[in-house]
Measured scan of single mutants.
Amino acid sequence: NSLAEAKVLANRELDKYGVSDYYKNLINNAKTVEGVKALIDEILA
Rank of each mutant, 00 (worst) to 15 (best):
N1L: 15
N1E: 09
N1I: 15
N1W: 12
S2F: 09
S2C: 03
S2G: 11
S2Q: 11
S2T: 13
S2W: 08
L3T: 02
L3C: 02
L3M: 02
L3R: 00
L3P: 01
L3N: 00
L3H: 00
L3S: 00
A4W: 15
A4I: 09
A4F: 09
A4N: 09
A4E: 12
A4R: 11
E5M: 12
E5F: 08
E5G: 04
E5V: 13
A6L: 14
A6E: 06
A6S: 05
A6N: 04
K7Y: 03
K7Q: 08
K7I: 13
K7W: 02
K7G: 01
K7M: 06
K7P: 00
K7E: 01
K7T: 02
K7C: 03
V8L: 14
V8N: 13
V8W: 15
L9K: 14
L9Q: 14
L9A: 15
L9W: 15
L9M: 14
A10Y: 03
A10K: 00
A10T: 02
N11H: 15
N11T: 09
N11P: 00
N11G: 07
N11F: 15
N11I: 15
R12H: 09
R12Y: 11
R12V: 12
R12Q: 15
R12M: 15
R12D: 04
R12W: 11
E13W: 13
E13Y: 14
E13P: 00
E13L: 15
E13A: 09
E13I: 15
L14C: 04
L14F: 04
L14N: 02
L14M: 08
L14K: 01
D15Q: 08
D15K: 10
D15G: 08
D15F: 06
D15A: 12
D15W: 04
D15L: 09
D15I: 08
K16E: 05
K16G: 06
K16W: 05
K16M: 07
K16C: 05
K16A: 09
K16Y: 08
Y17S: 04
Y17C: 02
G18Y: 07
G18I: 07
G18T: 05
G18Q: 09
G18P: 06
G18E: 07
V19L: 13
V19E: 04
V19S: 04
V19H: 09
V19F: 15
V19K: 05
V19Q: 06
V19Y: 15
S20V: 05
S20K: 06
S20H: 09
S20F: 06
S20Q: 07
S20I: 05
D21R: 08
D21Q: 12
D21P: 11
D21M: 09
D21A: 14
D21C: 02
D21G: 07
Y22D: 06
Y22C: 10
Y22T: 08
Y22W: 12
Y22I: 06
Y22G: 05
Y22P: 03
Y22K: 10
Y22F: 11
Y22S: 04
Y22H: 12
Y23I: 03
Y23L: 05
Y23C: 07
Y23D: 03
Y23E: 03
Y23W: 14
K24A: 06
K24F: 05
K24Y: 09
K24R: 14
K24N: 03
K24I: 07
K24E: 03
K24C: 03
N25D: 15
N25S: 09
N25H: 12
N25W: 10
L26W: 08
L26K: 08
L26V: 04
L26E: 06
L26D: 03
L26I: 10
L26G: 02
L26A: 10
L26H: 04
I27H: 00
I27T: 01
I27L: 06
I27F: 03
I27S: 00
I27W: 00
I27G: 00
N28Q: 12
N28S: 09
N28I: 07
N28C: 05
N28M: 11
N28T: 08
N29M: 12
N29R: 05
N29E: 15
N29Y: 03
N29P: 00
N29V: 08
N29K: 09
N29A: 09
N29L: 11
A30H: 02
A30S: 07
A30D: 01
A30C: 13
A30F: 02
A30L: 06
A30R: 03
K31E: 13
K31D: 13
K31C: 03
K31N: 12
K31G: 09
T32M: 01
T32E: 02
T32W: 01
T32P: 00
T32D: 09
T32N: 06
T32R: 02
V33C: 03
V33M: 08
V33L: 11
V33R: 04
V33Y: 06
V33Q: 04
V33F: 06
V33S: 04
V33T: 06
V33I: 15
E34W: 06
E34N: 05
E34A: 12
E34K: 05
E34F: 05
E34I: 04
E34R: 05
E34P: 03
G35I: 09
G35A: 15
G35W: 06
G35D: 15
V36S: 00
V36F: 02
V36W: 00
V36Y: 01
V36E: 00
K37F: 13
K37P: 00
K37D: 04
A38E: 05
A38N: 06
A38G: 06
A38Q: 12
A38M: 13
A38W: 12
A38P: 01
L39R: 01
L39H: 02
L39Q: 02
L39S: 01
I40Y: 12
I40V: 15
I40K: 11
I40N: 01
I40C: 03
I40M: 15
I40L: 15
D41K: 14
D41N: 12
D41G: 06
D41R: 13
D41S: 07
D41W: 10
D41I: 14
D41V: 13
D41H: 10
D41Y: 12
D41T: 14
E42Q: 11
E42S: 13
E42N: 13
E42C: 11
E42W: 15
E42R: 13
E42L: 10
I43Q: 01
I43M: 05
I43D: 00
I43C: 03
I43N: 00
I43G: 03
L44Q: 07
L44R: 13
L44W: 05
L44I: 08
L44S: 05
L44H: 08
L44M: 12
A45M: 13
A45T: 12
A45V: 09
A45L: 14
A45Y: 12
